[in-house]
Computed example of a mutant assay.
Amino acid sequence: MSESFLPHMNGVTGSVLQVVDQFAARGDDLAIIAPRQPGAERFLRTSCGRKIRVRRITSVPMLGYGDVRIATTSAASLRRRIADFQPDVVHLASPTILGGRAMIAAQQLGLPTVAVYQTDIPGYTARYGLPFLEAASWQLLRDVHNRATLTLAPSTFTRDQLREHGIERIRLWRRGVDTARFSPSLRSEALRAELAEPGERIVLYVGRLAPEKQVEDLRILHDLPGVRVVVVGEGPEEETLRRAMPRARFRGFRGGADLAAHLASADLFVHPGELETFCQTIQEAMASGLPAIAPRRGGPVDLIAPSRTGWLYTPGMLDELREHAVDLLFDDAKREAFGAAALASVHARTWPVLAEQLRGYYAEAIGARELSRRAP
């Protein structure tokens, strides 16, 4: 069960696709329930060639953010769809509205549930100018996640944050990275020549161009002599960012080998968002041999080892960001050493390893549900 899915591509969709690929390759029976939206396919073809049915449910676009869909299907309708498939466990990806109803449906059917926390909704409400909704958002998340058999947090920061807000039965489940797709070997001098002037160092950002990502903070690097900021992604903030950083190269959405080439051809990766529960693009940058810089908050705290694979800076202290960037951009030996350490740090974080860990959590949830059934 995914709160968002193709054709809308984001961190939730990406991790669901990877999990489906891994389990399909093992021959497991899978079904996906996701919001219906324009351009959505009825089937997903996995990398091993299997076709997985995507059961689309009624949804409407979120006001002001049309590619985000809000499901309108009832818990009763979801219960029928889940019962038709007869699953052993229900996986809920970033559950809120749809996930909350699916949680109720699964409980009514006596099925174990594993809820994967991926989106800092309370933080988003403040970033979007609605801080009065923060407490209500935490209440919603408590109501949803405390119904789950297990909740999986993507980072130690997020795990501790969830505990502080009263969420129970939390386990740590990070994300994998495709080290075959993302590699320093894909570095392209032709692409570098397209992105920057000769001799310029390239600072790369990859992600949504939306307020919560704080891409505008890259302005602190935009006018550094000998530096070119390159932005990969799309979103509602694009025109504003283009005006704020006229020298930056905006490349739009990139995926697959094209994205991997952009990462491998840069010199430094920077993600300024302070609301990342994990930040998959940092792992992909590291697998491409890049050191990374991010705020000292959320998922990046687990991913970046300061003074070894990159730097963490105090949220809001953009002078620190600039100092760390200059430190790496204009010291080739240090940057190369950090990049090599970054690459080594992600070698064990492959999706097959993470899928096996997830399988273990499924087994734990199934076992916990069996024990509760036997309890007097």
Rank of each mutant, 00 (worst) to 15 (best):
E284R: 03
L111Y: 07
S185M: 12
T151N: 04
R374N: 04
G166P: 12
F269L: 10
L150P: 14
G14S: 10
F253E: 01
R369P: 03
A305F: 00
D223K: 04
L221C: 08
E239T: 12
V229Y: 12
P198R: 00
L6R: 10
E194S: 11
T156C: 09
S288A: 07
T156W: 10
L17Y: 07
L312H: 13
D331N: 15
L204N: 02
F43W: 15
V203G: 07
R201C: 08
T240N: 08
R249M: 08
V89P: 06
D120S: 04
R142F: 01
D21N: 14
G235K: 04
I304G: 02
E3N: 02
G129L: 00
G39N: 05
S345N: 06
D178N: 05
L17C: 10
R369S: 14
E276D: 15
M62R: 05
D88S: 10
A148H: 12
L321A: 02
D143I: 03
S185L: 13
G99I: 01
A102P: 07
T58I: 09
E238I: 05
W311I: 04
G39I: 03
Q37C: 13
T113W: 06
L224W: 07
P306R: 08
S155Q: 09
P122T: 12
L172M: 14
T119R: 11
L172F: 13
L162H: 09
V230I: 02
R26L: 13
F23C: 11
S94Y: 11
L224S: 07
V116D: 07
V177S: 09
R163D: 11
S77E: 15
E41N: 15
F23P: 14
V19Q: 09
D160K: 06
H262F: 05
M103G: 11
T13H: 05
G256C: 08
E164Y: 00
A136V: 09
L218G: 13
E197Y: 02
Q86H: 13
E189P: 00
V19G: 07
Q161T: 15
F132K: 04
V270P: 12
L98P: 03
V90P: 03
T13A: 02
R181V: 09
H8N: 14
A24P: 08
Q280R: 13
L268C: 05
R243E: 10
G233T: 07
R55E: 15
D28A: 05
A115S: 15
A40T: 09
I52C: 11
G252Y: 02
H165E: 00
R147F: 01
P315L: 08
L195V: 00
R36I: 03
T73W: 08
E284H: 03
R163Y: 08
P154T: 13
R50T: 07
V206W: 15
T119I: 12
Q107Y: 01
M317I: 13
E239M: 05
A325S: 15
F338A: 09
R219Q: 14
K334M: 12
P38D: 15
G49N: 04
P315F: 06
R335K: 11
Q161G: 00
A180R: 14
L92H: 09
A196C: 02
T314Q: 15
S155R: 09
M9K: 15
P295I: 15
T46Y: 01
A75F: 04
L224R: 10
A71F: 07
G129F: 00
P131K: 03
T119W: 09
